[in-house]
Design a protein around this nucleic acid. Structure first.
Length: 949
DNA sequence: ACCGCCGGGTGCC
DNA sequence: ACCGCCGGGTGCC
């Protein structure tokens, strides 16, 4: 028998159901069924896993474009051989079983939890198999009634697919004598929605009024609003938190603590007599569905998500009791967080940490002694050790578990009952790493010894016992994914964590990305996502978050798609209500405008935006006009030919050039032009230079496959850029016939060219004789000089997408005696932290200006020392500008914030601002019912508008 | 399965 | 009797 990865919880469920189904839950030992059941269940869950992965990889793009071909009633047979139960109106999934020894057409039927219910009877399976295998349609099932039948039950099958495949599907079915029934009013055969009787009242569904796109957008904007009810109770943090919490932070702490400790059922689960019932899928289980211990803290940036999280860590170890912490002598107090901080910077401190905390036997005993003597404070030292052991055993030894059936059933109980986990793992983008360290230092009392270990840098300690013994381990998504992908086993994946916190958690929204998979594979009791923008582009983003939170059954894509995503994107108001309820149950979101007891959550100083129009000098204008003429000719030709997207790299290059000319004529990078290139290395060089020009300019390009920001960008020979994982998936699924999703030319994995990152460019601005200013530089300088004249203590952010522009600006800044610092994407963690620290320092002589690249660091950065922001060039994405401004317009800002946008008159920049405005109104931005085609078209429209074509 | 199907027993009413 | 009818055995793919 095949033996795949063993999942204890799957078997526990299986046992429960076998008892339930066959013996009404009356105690018969589990053992009788184990040998039969669990091997099958394991292969089964594997099969389901495989099939859903395939769908998500190759078909997901089309998913939203799928239409309902129709419904058909079929029969599920062989019920008595399996343990999976279904309820009236319950959704089931259909899984092809091509290896079935009796019938190669076999189609297996499984319930929401993945337990097999039966098979589709063979005549129908014979008709379905080629349709499923040929990916001509996706078939979904609902059991309308007859759920108590012993031998077979009816199932309503809905066929979904691309319009162009409809006829061949109908033909294939009719060849076997089947005919699709009417698709009741354009809707699938849906399960009731709220009751098992829902099926009996399908007319109710027909009356559901579909929402208009505008209503949908409105509903979406409101999705996270009004989440405040019942979330206004406050909780005081543990003593160890030094900073007093604001009322809304105490509310968040109470809410988070409650979410970690309480026993509420997850959303949409109800208890009915002795069963637990999911009202959306109509699935029921006898055992209590595992609650979601955690959720999404989606407060606006600046409301103190970091502080609240620190308070949670310290205040809710178990059941609302604070984390037991050793008090350290005040004289030694400074070592609190510092001792474990940045070990790669200071090897000496690493030694210190390891000696005191690594559980080498000797160190351990001394620590225990200390614990037993320290007054009242229990140091739960060995718990961490046990947790690490637990992690190890659950990892290996699956074969043994098979032999020791009964005991493993006990071991498969949820962690919480016997939890020994102590440590919280915090993952964040590199840019906010130092912020976390600062905040721990700032907010935790000096005389409390909280072990915060920074798992970062080449010298990081990989000892799992040591890691599990910390109170907090802080690391980045990059470190986690590189550990996860390396051959050696990943230490962070071996620890059983008390809690995992994903800071800026929306970064895991692309399920293809390595870091997403790495995060999903962590073992933890409680899970939190911190994100000011949980949904970036589309509803799909939310799925990954739910998947991380293990919100059953939505962690499985099929159920998410069927129950939430498709209904919502198709404008079903009930679907939207469900989504709303779902989000409400697990999210806390306040904006700066939210009110607590009638008072604004945060009283922030004013913020004003001024647009300063810049007029180019005659010479600059001449150069710009020339470039614009050329560009219009080229792009105009592409538009006429309909080849804008085929030549997208050229188009972007032209646009970048114009934007650069608006800033400074010397910004122009080397550009290899559009001519023919003969040798592969020349071609490669050209591709790289094109893409470098575009990506290096700071424009936030998206991958046309995941429609998300590029990760690990690669360039195809046809000069289109995608995330490596995304395009590789396309090539893998289409094999030799793989075509570029943008221009349909042939692509091959080995022809993908890696984007080498920012050029170490020889470009410098020091040669004074060569220096010349530009109109925009002049505009900035006169503003800065005037500001210095008014009030020398004012600090400013000077923001551009072009790092070269920042470099150019250094010259006049020096010339006029400004002290400045700089933060851009090319800097490592250490120099970033230094730049921020210097800038935030208020003492005289500290820098008054920070040169900031728009994309550097993304959100979370705290630059409250600045109260003026100069946006040197407009961004494609207005949200990026807002985020940038929010770095100083946030909690801690004392002055009114003044934002100055420099826009060159009659240029692409002005057109970009127009497009920005339009985009803000666009429904598309709100929710992703928009197809890839539409997105492509709107890109072309944008370009035409920019070039006034 | 209170079915359909198979195959053996049986054969006026 | 190369049928019909009866009733027991049986049952996914």
């Amino acid at each position: 028998m095949l033996y795949y990865e063993f999942r204890p919880e799957a078997r526990a469920k299986c046992n429960m159901q076998s008892n339930f189904r066959r013996f009404g839950g009356i105690g018969l030992t589990f053992i009788d069924f184990l040998d039969v059941d669990h091997t099958e269940t394991v292969t089964l869950s594997q099969a389901i896993q495989n099939s859903s992965e395939e769908v998500s990889a190759s078909q997901d793009l089309e998913n939203e474009a799928n239409v309902l071909f129709g419904n058909i009633q079929g029969t599920v047979v062989g019920l008595r051989y399996y343990t999976g139960v279904v309820n009236r109106g319950e959704m089931v999934s259909l899984v092809r079983e091509p290896q079935n020894p009796y019938d190669r057409n076999a189609v297996m039927v499984a319930n929401v939890y993945g337990s097999q219910v039966g098979h589709i009877k063979k005549e129908l399976a014979a008709a379905m198999a080629p349709i499923i295998d040929g990916k001509l349609a996706k078939i979904e099932g609902v059991v309308p009634y007859g759920e108590t039948n012993k031998f077979s039950m009816p199932v309503i099958l809905s066929f979904w697919g691309k319009e162009e495949n409809k006829n061949s599907v109908l033909n294939m079915l009719s060849r076997h004598g089947y005919k699709l029934g009417p698709s009741s009013g354009g809707k699938a055969y849906l399960s009731g929605g709220q009751t098992p009787q829902g099926f009996l009242a399908p007319s109710k569904r027909l009356n559901a009024v579909p929402l208009t796109p505008e209503q949908l957008k409105g509903a979406f904007d409101k999705l996270f609003d009004d989440l405040m009810e019942d979330k206004t109770r406050e909780m005081e943090p543990a003593e160890a938190v030094h900073t007093p919490l604001l009322p809304h932070q105490k509310q968040a702490l109470h809410w988070m603590t409650t979410r970690e400790n309480n026993n509420d059922l997850p959303p949409f689960w109800e208890q009915k007599s002795n069963l637990y019932f999911n009202v959306l899928t109509n699935f029921a289980v006898r055992e209590r569905p595992e609650r979601v211990r955690g959720g999404i803290l989606a407060d606006d940036m600046g409301l103190g998500k970091t502080l609240t999280t620190i308070a949670l860590i310290v205040s809710n170890f178990h059941n609302g009791k604070p984390l037991p912490l050793e008090k350290s002598a005040t004289s030694d107090g400074h070592s609190k967080a510092l001792q474990s901080k940045r070990p790669h910077e200071d090897p000496a401190t690493v030694e210190d940490v390891e000696q005191s905390a690594v559980p080498k036997k000797k160190a351990k005993t001394t620590k225990k002694d200390k614990a037993s003597t320290s007054k009242g404070t229990v140091l739960m030292d060995d718990l961490g050790f046990a947790a690490a052991l637990g992690g190890l055993t659950s990892d290996g030894g699956s074969k043994k578990k098979k032999a020791k059936k009964k005991s493993s059933a006990v071991a498969s109980l949820p962690l919480e009952s016997s939890s020994s986990a102590r440590a919280t793992l915090i993952l964040c983008p590199l840019s906010v790493l130092s912020n976390w360290l600062d905040q721990f230092e700032q907010h935790v009392r000096v005389d409390v010894k909280l072990n915060v270990y920074l798992y970062y840098g080449a010298e990081r300690c990989r000892d799992t016992d040591f890691l599990a013994g910390q109170e907090v381990v802080l690391s980045t998504y990059n470190i986690l994914s590189s550990d996860f992908s390396s051959k050696a086993s990943s230490p962070l994946h071996k620890v059983s964590w008390l809690r995992v916190v994903l800071d800026e958690g929306h970064v895991i929204r692309n399920p293809n990305a390595l870091q997403s998979r790495a995060v999903l594979n962590l073992t933890t009791e409680r899970r939190w996502i911190l994100s000011g923008t949980p949904i970036q582009n589309s509803l799909k983003d939310l799925w990954m978050l739910l998947s991380f939170l293990k919100l059953k059954p939505f962690d499985v894509k099929e159920w998410w798609n069927r129950v939430i995503q498709r209904p919502v994107t198709q404008g079903d108001s009930e679907g939207l209500q469900n989504l709303q309820a779902l989000v409400k149950g697990i999210t806390l979101r306040r904006t700066k405008a939210s009110k607590v007891a009638g008072k604004q959550v945060v009283e922030l100083p004013d913020r004003k935006v001024f647009v300063e129009h810049v007029t180019l000098s005659e010479e600059e204008q001449r150069e710009y006009d020339l470039a614009k003429m050329e560009g219009r000719n080229v792009i105009g030709r592409y538009v006429k030919e309909g080849t804008v997207l085929t030549n997208y790299a050229d188009v972007l290059a032209i646009l970048v050039r114009l934007r650069q000319l608006c800033c400074h004529p010397r910004l122009l990078g080397s550009y290899a032009g559009t001519g023919e290139s003969s040798t592969p290395s020349e071609l490669r060089e050209r591709l790289v230079s094109k893409v470098r020009l575009v990506l290096g300019s700071g424009s936030d390009e998206e991958c046309a496959i995941c429609l998300d920001s590029l990760r690990q960008p690669v360039i195809t020979y046809c000069a289109h850029v995608f995330c490596r994982p995304c395009i590789c998936e396309v090539i893998r699924s289409e094999q030799e016939h793989a075509k570029c999703p943008l221009c349909r030319s042939q692509i091959k994995t080995r022809e993908l060219v890696e984007y080498p990152g920012e050029e170490e460019d020889s470009f410098s601005a020091d040669g004074k004789d060569k220096w010349q200013s530009s109109s925009k530089v002049n505009a900035l300088m006169s503003s800065l000089l005037a500001l210095r004249g008014e009030d020398g203590s004012i600090k400013s952010l000077v923001v551009s997408q072009f790092t070269r522009f920042l470099t150019l600006l250094e010259v006049p800044l020096r010339e006029h005696g400004f002290t400045f610092t700089r933060l851009d994407g090319s800097m490592n963690q250490k120099s970033r932290a230094k730049a921020i620290e210097e800038f935030q320092d208020a003492s005289p002589g500290s820098p008054s200006i920070m040169l900031l690249s728009l994309k550097a660091g993304g959100v979370g950065l705290n630059l409250t020392a600045a109260s003026h922001v100069f946006l040197m060039d407009p961004a494609w994405n207005p949200a990026a500008e807002d985020q940038c401004v929010d770095r100083c317009h946030r909690l801690g800002q004392k002055r009114d914030v003044v934002i100055t946008k420099f826009i060159v008159k009659d240029s692409v920049e002005e057109n970009m601002v127009k497009i920005q405005k339009k985009k803000k109104d666009l429904v598309e931005k709100a929710f992703g019912a928009k197809s890839v085609q539409d997105k492509r078209q709107s890109r072309i429209d944008d370009i035409r508008a920019l070039m006034e074509l």
